[in-house]
Design a binder for these strands. Structure first.
Lengths: 339, 339
DNA sequence: ATACAAAATGTAATCGATAACACTAAATAG
DNA sequence: CTATTTAGTGTTATCGATTACATTTTGTAT
């Protein structure tokens, strides 16, 4: 009795067949009330639990979905996953999580693993820039398994996506900084071969152009999302002949690093210098000098992604491109003028 | 051609049987080099991927493990999960994540779901205090599925656990605060019906006793882990006739709330008041006034839990109780004396 | 009581991979 | 040149649940 009761065990106990047991358990109309009741009672007594694997093999649906993210221990990704989980759990789906650690090979491997596991759908925030090598993504599409990109998407046919309007977020932020009296705005960019970072850059650029501010290439620095890179970037900026008086960082962590370094140099924020982050990491709110940032509504993003998946599964829509509105959180680090 | 190649398809293509194909793919010795090569080539050409579900059904091993946590979007749990994932991925396991939202029913439900899904092991940080109702846990043990508690454990036979030495962490912290000249130490406690919170309380208590400081019941406040509760608790403490001059909070978030409120009241930290948190949330380090806290090594905890699971699976050990050492991170919020 | 419809149950195939056992063919021993 | 080993394949049952189809039982009408 290692605790594995199957419908055959129940059938044997009641001297009927497994088919009847199955029908009873599934509320099949072709069954008498008496046997149904008997089966249900016995199943309960024998502590029967349906083997989802057997079901999955037969039905071709595993009731699992996969989520592929660069890493899970950042607020953003953890929250999106939570959103997906909350959206899908009521429908009986379990979430399988894979991390790529920003590694391209790992991403390919993860996709394959999930396909082997027969997941019913894949949610993914891409880590790399699958140059021409979309092979592994094509395979998902071919197998007709719903694929939903979130945040870091890639424009493709037959693939859904849920993102925020990164262009708008960036445009509005830049506009805000200009309104605060900053015209020399440095920009910390992520890898622009990823669509979101390209969109953000375009927003920044356009806002400057619309305000007749020329683009200064010296102000544009490519960084990775961490504190140290923010510090280093500021150091570089301050050595310029004509240093900036604001930073729009596409990473909250880099924004934090920038603030640290600026303070060390005795530069006053926001009086002398404004800083704006991106992502609404929890710490941005907690700081003594709270950091202005952009909220990407990760929880809603996850829930929306779940909904897109369900719509596809239920044949309501074949493909959706959902774009959420960014929320500018204007806090102390960029507030000179109180309106 | 929806992209589902099975070994039968390969067999048919080569005019051999599925058994032979299976043997070829599994490097079975009873096969000729020529057919093996042929099969491998054909499998590759037909883009064959093994169906893990079929394998799982037959072998009884799903190669999935389940993780049950209160929530995933906090640094601690996200990091533990990351650790588990990193420890298990090389062995071919996938991680399925479930959240309880601190709800007892949800916890029971999650365990059942994971059992149905035939997971090979369950990692869990318990949300509730299964009074006498250990039924759902017993079932896991009966089915002989490795169960590993982490952090929030419950002492049980046949169940492994990975925790830090909460008693020691608490004792050392209290001792540290006393050494900093604080003898009136308030204590923010979690729910003491959970073992970890009881252990932490005992450490606090013992350290005071060992220093001949009487316990002041007014200083002991039960809180939930968030900023607001920390603020409220401080307010209460400051109305006391004899208010404390230090707080040891078992939650970083509450510690942050406390610091905010103390500053608003013009109380200087650490000169007039020391604060110590618990958990090493990222923000504690980033604050202008960095917050002293205790690191629980969540990544290592996860990796260790993974190892404990593997040891059990491989019959190396039947049950392990691993206790990691806490790391006191003494930062500005509790540093009066610089040694 | 007979015929026939309706209800309830049984039989067997299926999902995909594996493995114990059976079998064929070639290889070696005598 | 026959006997026996052995390398290589084939046959078939299995994991657990579901379901189309077949069969039995029950109920109803005449």
């Amino acid at each position: 009795m290692s605790g594995k009761t199957t419908i055959y065990d129940i059938a044997k106990a009641l001297n009927i067949t497994a088919a009847t047991v199955s029908r009873a358990l599934n509320d099949n109309p072709k069954i008498s009330q008496s046997t149904r009741k008997l089966v249900l009672e016995t199943a309960n007594k024998m502590n029967y639990k349906q083997n989802k694997l057997a079901l999955a093999l037969r039905s071709g649906k595993s009731n699992n979905v996969g989520v592929i993210v660069p890493r899970i221990n950042t607020n953003f990704f953890a929250s999106v996953i939570r959103g997906i989980e909350e959206g899908l759990h009521p429908e009986g789906y379990q979430v399988i999580i894979c991390q790529t650690h920003e590694d391209e090979d790992r991403e390919v491997e993860n996709v394959n693993t999930l396909l082997n596991a027969q997941v019913d759908g894949i949610f993914m925030s891409i880590s790399n820039l699958p140059k021409e090598n979309n092979h592994y993504i094509e395979r998902v599409i071919q197998k007709n398994i719903p694929l939903i990109f979130f945040d870091r998407k890639k424009e493709m046919k037959n693939v859904s996506s849920v993102t925020i309007d990164d262009y708008l977020a960036s445009y509005q932020t830049t506009q805000h900084l200009i309104e605060q009296g900053c015209e020399k705005i440095a920009y910390f960019s992520g890898d622009r071969s990823l669509e979101i970072y390209e969109d953000r850059y375009r927003g920044y650029e356009q806002a400057l152009l619309d305000n007749n501010i020329p683009i200064n290439e010296d102000y544009i620095i490519s960084i990775k999302s961490n504190v140290v890179e923010g510090r280093d970037a500021v150091e570089k900026l301050l050595t310029l002949e004509n240093p900036p008086n604001a930073i729009f960082s596409t990473s909250d962590f880099a924004a934090l690093g920038a603030i640290q370094k600026l303070k060390e140099r005795g530069i006053k924020i926001p009086e002398d210098f404004c800083v704006f982050g991106f992502g609404n990491e929890p710490f941005t709110k907690f700081m003594e000098l709270s950091i202005s940032t952009i909220d990407q509504s990760p929880l809603e993003m996850g829930k929306m992604a779940a909904q897109v998946f369900l719509d596809k599964i239920n044949n309501k829509k074949s493909e959706s491109k959902v774009v959420l509105l960014p929320k500018l959180l204007i806090r102390q680090s960029s507030t000179r003028i109180i309106t």
